[in-house]
Write a protein that binds this DNA or RNA. Structure first.
Lengths: 244, 244
DNA sequence: TTATTTTTTAACGCTTTTTTTACGCCCCGC
DNA sequence: GCGGGGCGTAAAAAAAGCGTTAAAAAATAA
């Protein structure tokens, strides 16, 4: 889907209606509620505007001069998932069913109350927003080679089934190393990330921490399976493929 | 948790309405459409059913005998995100606005056409499904391991049958932990959720509250059965499977 | 209002974590 | 072989975090 869906200050609402007085009416109401408005008086320009600005919500009148409302809706749904509220004078049930099944999110019959319409707008925006936020639920990075298992999101580490307790700093180091898996992380980088920019020279802390980490992970500095020392530079976490 | 909202063959719809003929009517219509039905004739059993079965959609009549419809809605929204379609004889605009802003997803005025209602049901299910795929799986509102029983909807907690009284803050903490069951909730997250963004560093409050909570739930900090502390990070509610 | 519950504040052990301090090792150039 | 820098380990001392208790303050119910 195209949907740039950037975070705008104000939600954009596209009104597609041929009656000037309705547009005027909606313009007043929606603007005072803090929405940014886009207007079109026929289906074609409506689709064009929608494509160009990808509004957060569309209010669509079914009775348009140039094309049938359902055509507009169908055209929209081919690429956009923005919520659509249908506006119509016709109160025929079949119309509603058709529109809703075509992908509309709500159907309001004229004449309608402003407050109700605004509430329905809020409802649709709220619903649609919710789905969007949850998209990236913190990349659940996981390492698992059969013996060692690391789940960063759950903050769980097990060695051959046995859970291992890591202190906050230990876990922080492991996380940084694992996220840069295979690549070297310099000592100063690690120090900056975990102790803050004031301790970038205390390479000492690191050695102790790495030591404890290795011990807990069942690693050995002489035969480095997971954490590899790059003398004078830093450390790297070995991916399974890298292991000799 | 009892019922982790697994993918069922048929969508479950919970109808909360006191009028038998309406329920009968809805039962016929919804069943022939292939939905599985749950019915409640008052708010309390409605909330209970919802907590136990976590339906995919709720149809809620505003005029209930035992409690106000908005109370039911509000109670539901404390822990559930299932779409709610309001049914009402009252056509007052303010009612609609209130219900929609309280978290309802649609509002249908009686008398209504079956086909329209069914179309609106489809619309809500379709919308909610879309959002769900990305989101964390919905956790059920009930925990029960034979000894400890927590019902978020009813706001009731019992330990081996005996009801336990929780203060509002205690319950709030428990709710947050339970809804994130198995996952860590950071201290700052808890503090923000319950005390507001101004007290994100007063980890002290938490320790006291968690302490009392453990005491009331019959938990022991040395042998953590329910609430596990992740030192330096936060707390997590243990699902039965996690318990060692 | 009074009485009761709930929340906040304060203080104290206890444990864990972090930091400090000290020491041994190995590789390399001298 | 001698000494220095970088690395790893092992022990302490210091600090921070957790859990508990008791009492004061605030909120709530009666």
């Amino acid at each position: 889907m195209t949907e740039p869906a950037k975070d705008r200050e104000k939600p954009y609402i596209l009104v597609i209606d041929d009656e000037p007085q309705i547009r005027h009416f909606l313009r007043i109401s929606l603007k005072t509620e803090g929405y940014e408005l886009l207007e079109a008086e026929n289906g074609e320009t409506g689709l064009g505007l929608c494509a160009r600005h990808s509004p957060d919500l569309v209010i669509l009148d079914l009775g348009l001069p140039d094309m049938d409302g359902s055509e507009v809706l169908a055209g929209l749904r081919e690429w956009s998932s923005a919520p659509v509220i249908i506006l119509s004078v016709r109160d025929r049930e079949l119309e509603k069913v058709k529109a809703l099944d075509l992908g509309a999110n709500d159907y309001v019959t004229k004449p309608f109350g402003v407050d109700e319409l605004l509430a329905r707008v809020r409802t649709q925006l709220r619903n649609h927003q919710k789905g969007k936020n949850a998209v990236a639920p913190e990349t659940s990075a996981i390492f698992d080679n059969g013996e060692l298992n690391i789940d960063l999101a759950m903050r769980k580490v097990t060695v051959s089934g046995e859970p291992v307790k890591l202190t906050p700093k230990e876990f922080a180091v492991l996380k940084v190393l694992l996220l840069a898996s295979g690549k070297i992380v310099t000592q100063s980088q690690l120090l900056k990330d975990i102790w803050g920019p004031t301790h970038t020279t205390d390479t000492h802390y690191l050695r102790i921490l790495i030591g404890r980490l290795r011990q807990k992970l069942g690693d050995d500095p002489t035969e480095q399976r997971y954490i590899q020392t790059e003398p004078g530079v830093g450390y790297r976490f070995l991916e399974s493929s890298d292991q000799v």
